[in-house]
Write a protein that binds this DNA or RNA. Structure first.
Lengths: 247, 247
DNA sequence: TGAAGCTCCTATGTATACATAGAATTCAGG
DNA sequence: CCTGAATTCTATGTATACATAGGAGCTTCA
């Protein structure tokens, strides 16, 4: 099965195996997994800009794996929609036009409104009560600078996780994960807008309260409102800084 | 880029290259593409039953490609959700439990109801008027035996294509394609039920008429009804023939 | 006879060498 | 100087050899 390495066999660098005292559950991922994660992170962070070309040999040299696992990584990125094959010349990071942002949010509306409805029916109230308390601290959190900001984004992730768990539908969760992948690229553009983050926290809070109350209709509509505001904010940020856009 | 072969280099069988008079636009697909299509078709047709094990060497021998393109094919099937990696022993065709059918239809509702709403707004009326006329012939078609049945399934495909075109959203279309892939496995179970097919044609007709009329609400609700009936039919068929189920 | 340990085997993960097609470049001819 | 074709070059597609890990089966000991 999954052959695992703590390090690349050819690169005998850090963490010598002799030093393990207990059980070192360190990296332990395959080369293709490492290549996938690195490329994916770099695309989501914008290090690999939209439109950037990816060459197998070039990338495999850079990351330190052979072409075979790198090809597997690129295949996964293509399935994710983050990379596309170019007709003549290798592969490229997919672009993110204003149109495609609208399209992504259209799918996001369909999925998240449905997910919110389901969550309001199937949720574990304790989980969302806990989340509600956390989100109530968001305004203070956003006054704490970088650390508070980090915690805030963790809260968003916690909310997404709670939603996935409440929905309990692998197909829907997978579709949502796909949307969130592309969303991560967009979020970079609109980050660090304190006023928007405070408003977003309030919108999340309303969704959570609707889920706690089992109010399917309010959960769906509050989600719709939240996504509308989120999209408006992204589009405004893009208009203010068109250079951040790729298309 | 895409290296293409008309035949496997090692299998020097039919269609000798010397006989090409004009331009033979025959198969011309890569080995990995061929492997992917064959495995995918076999899974959807049930030739490779749910739970069946897939071994790289075994399948690459059978299909006539080396392990490298076959691995690429399996990677795509995993991304499709048709194959899953087994912990200890190779890969297996994913199972389709009654629960997962419910889950799939839950996602399908979210996507298709939304798609129907959008289509009712953005559709090209001519396309759907044409479709309406076609679907009106469905009852007669279903009296024509195998040939009519084949034409009927083509009609369904035409409807899906028209819906995709009207939606015009690559993200949504991709998500719908994913659902339809899994749906193809399920449809095998409930096929050849004339009464259900006649009813389904009538349901499609109503959806089409709503889209033509630009009635977003009716389009969505008619879709909901159709999916409810479709799911009921599948579940009834499963209950009548539990052996067809895999889980 | 049962259990524990070891060995072998099998199947995937990885690296590399070779095949091939398309694009870019260069050279020749007008 | 421009245009065309041939060639070279580059990058992916494919095949194969080797590494490795986990399981199954067998053997051995109590």
């Amino acid at each position: 099965m999954a052959s695992v390495y703590t390090e690349t066999p050819t690169s005998g660098n850090t963490t010598p195996v002799g030093t393990r005292t207990a059980a070192p559950p360190v990296a332990v991922v395959s080369a293709s997994e490492r290549a996938y994660r690195q490329l994916r992170d770099e695309i989501l962070d914008g290090v690999l800009a939209p439109g950037a070309g990816l060459l197998e040999v070039e990338q495999s040299d850079r990351i330190g794996v052979s072409r075979t696992p790198l090809r597997a990584a690129i295949a996964r990125l293509i399935a994710d929609g983050l990379v596309a094959g170019r007709a003549g010349r290798g592969f490229m990071v997919t672009e993110m036009s204003v149109d495609s942002i609208h399209e992504l949010y259209e799918l996001r509306r369909a999925l998240e409104e449905h997910a919110a409805r389901i969550a309001a029916t199937r949720r574990d109230p304790h989980v969302f009560l806990e989340l509600r308390d956390q989100f109530r601290t968001a305004p203070e959190l956003l006054l704490l600078g970088e650390a508070g900001l980090h915690r805030y984004y963790e809260l968003i992730d916690d909310f997404d996780d709670a939603l996935d768990a409440a929905v309990g539908n692998p197909f829907l969760v997978t579709a949502l994960a796909n949307v969130r992948t592309h969303l991560a690229r967009i979020r970079r553009l609109a980050r660090h807008n304190p006023a928007r983050l405070r408003a977003a926290a309030a919108e999340h809070l309303l969704i959570i309260e609707a889920i706690v109350a089992g109010d399917t209709s309010l959960a769906a509509h509050a989600t719709h409102v939240h996504l509308h505001q989120s999209l408006s904010n992204v589009l405004a940020a893009l208009e203010a800084n068109p250079a951040a856009q790729a298309d």
